[in-house]
């Protein structure tokens, strides 16, 4: 493998690892979302440093130019991360719906209780 591409790969993956780690340290990124990022950086970094493993892996899946295998692996991780986010968004949408329904039910109950307690008053929280 060309030395330059190895240096670039090591530098890029190390940077990725450092940025993610720093974001977690500052509590900007939750651990549960950082794990996949760190795992991908760690594996890419390992393969960048350990040339033998990368060459062997490339040969195993039939890639002539070993650094291309890094791209394949990186692409796999990108897909995995995107799927991860789609799942997270679906879950958030679900939670959001549950909360909205609960707020509606509680609001209705509050209006009802207010009307029972003081029928002459307008229900609180009533919107124009």
């Amino acid at each position: 493998m060309d030395n330059r591409i190895q240096i670039v790969a090591i530098f890029a993956t190390a940077l990725q690892f450092a940025v993610v780690f720093e974001l977690v340290r500052r509590r900007r990124l939750m651990e549960r979302y950082a794990l996949l990022w760190m795992l991908s950086a760690a594996i890419m970094l390992g393969l960048s440093i350990w040339r033998g493993a990368l060459e062997e892996l490339a040969q195993l899946i039939g890639i002539a130019y070993a650094p291309s295998a890094l791209f394949v692996i990186a692409f796999g991780f990108v897909l995995l991360l995107l799927l991860h986010f789609s799942l997270a968004i679906s879950r958030l949408a679900d939670e959001n719906k549950l909360l909205a329904q609960r707020v509606g039910l509680l609001q209705q109950r509050v209006d009802e209780l207010n009307t029972e307690a003081a029928p002459e008053l307008e229900p609180a929280g009533r919107r124009s």
């Binding site: 719906k97 909205a100 329904q101 707020v103 509606g104 609001q107 209705q108 009533r126 919107r127």
Partner: peptide, 28 residues
Amino acid sequence: DTAALARAAGASVLVLPFNLGIGGAVQA
């Protein structure tokens, strides 16, 4: 004025804080 008019007509009204779509509304 959907909520106010429904109340005036004598219905109980469950107001959702934002638009959930027909599925979420009916489930509520």
